[in-house]
Measured scan of single mutants.
Amino acid sequence: TIDEIIKALEQAVKDNKPIQVGNYTVTSADEAEKLAKKLKKEY
C-alpha cells in the first residue's frame, strides 16, 4: 500500500540509505518527500 511505501521511505531516510521504489531511486529526505507527495496524488 501507499502507507507502506511511505514508511519504507521514512525508514530509509533515517538510515540514510538510498532506496528503490518502483522506477524511482530515492537518496535523500527531500526526494523521499517529493516522491511521497507524488504517490499520494496518484493513488
Rank of each mutant, 00 (worst) to 15 (best):
D3T: 05
K41L: 15
L35D: 02
K38V: 07
K17H: 08
E10N: 06
A29Y: 04
I5D: 00
K14W: 13
L39I: 04
V26W: 03
Q20L: 06
N23I: 12
V13M: 14
I19H: 02
A32L: 07
L39T: 00
I19C: 10
A12W: 14
E4H: 07
K40S: 08
Y43A: 12
A36V: 15
A8S: 08
I2C: 13
A12M: 15
Y24I: 11
L9E: 00
I19G: 02
K34A: 15
T1Y: 11
P18R: 02
K38Q: 13
G22S: 02
D30T: 07
T25N: 11
A8E: 06
T1Q: 08
E33T: 06
P18A: 08
T25V: 12
E31R: 00
K40P: 00
Q11A: 09
T1N: 09
I2H: 05
E10F: 12
Y24R: 03
A29D: 02
A29V: 08
E10K: 04
K38P: 03
D30L: 12
A32N: 00
L39M: 05
T27H: 12
K40A: 09
V13G: 07
K34E: 14
E42W: 13
E33I: 14
V26S: 02
G22I: 03
V13F: 08
K37Q: 15
N16V: 03
V13R: 05
L39Q: 01
Y43G: 07
P18F: 06
P18I: 08
E31D: 08
E4A: 09
Q11F: 07
K37L: 14
N16Y: 05
A8N: 04
D30R: 09
N16F: 15
V26M: 03
K38C: 15
K40Y: 10
V13I: 15
E10Y: 13
K34R: 11
D15W: 12
D3Y: 13
N16D: 06
A12I: 09
N23S: 13
A36N: 01
D30A: 15
L39R: 00
T25F: 15
K40C: 15
S28N: 15
N23L: 08
E31G: 02
E10P: 00
K37W: 03
I2L: 11
E4R: 05
P18G: 12
V26G: 02
E31M: 11
D3K: 13
A36I: 15
N23V: 12
L39Y: 04
G22W: 09
L9N: 01
K14A: 11
L39P: 03
I5P: 01
K34V: 12
A8G: 05
K37H: 14
A12P: 00
T1I: 08
G22L: 07
T25Y: 15
K41S: 13
A12E: 02
T1M: 12
Q20N: 12
L9S: 00
K7I: 09
K41F: 13
I6W: 03
L9R: 00
T1F: 13
I2T: 03
A36S: 08
A29G: 12
L39N: 06
K37E: 15
K34H: 09
S28D: 11
A29N: 04
K17P: 02
D3P: 11
S28P: 02
D3V: 13
K14Q: 10
E42N: 07
V26L: 06
V13L: 08
I2N: 02
I5R: 00
E31C: 10
I2M: 10
T25G: 05
K34G: 05
D30P: 05
E42K: 10
T25M: 14
I6V: 04
E42A: 07
K17L: 13
L35M: 05
Y24G: 04
Q20D: 05
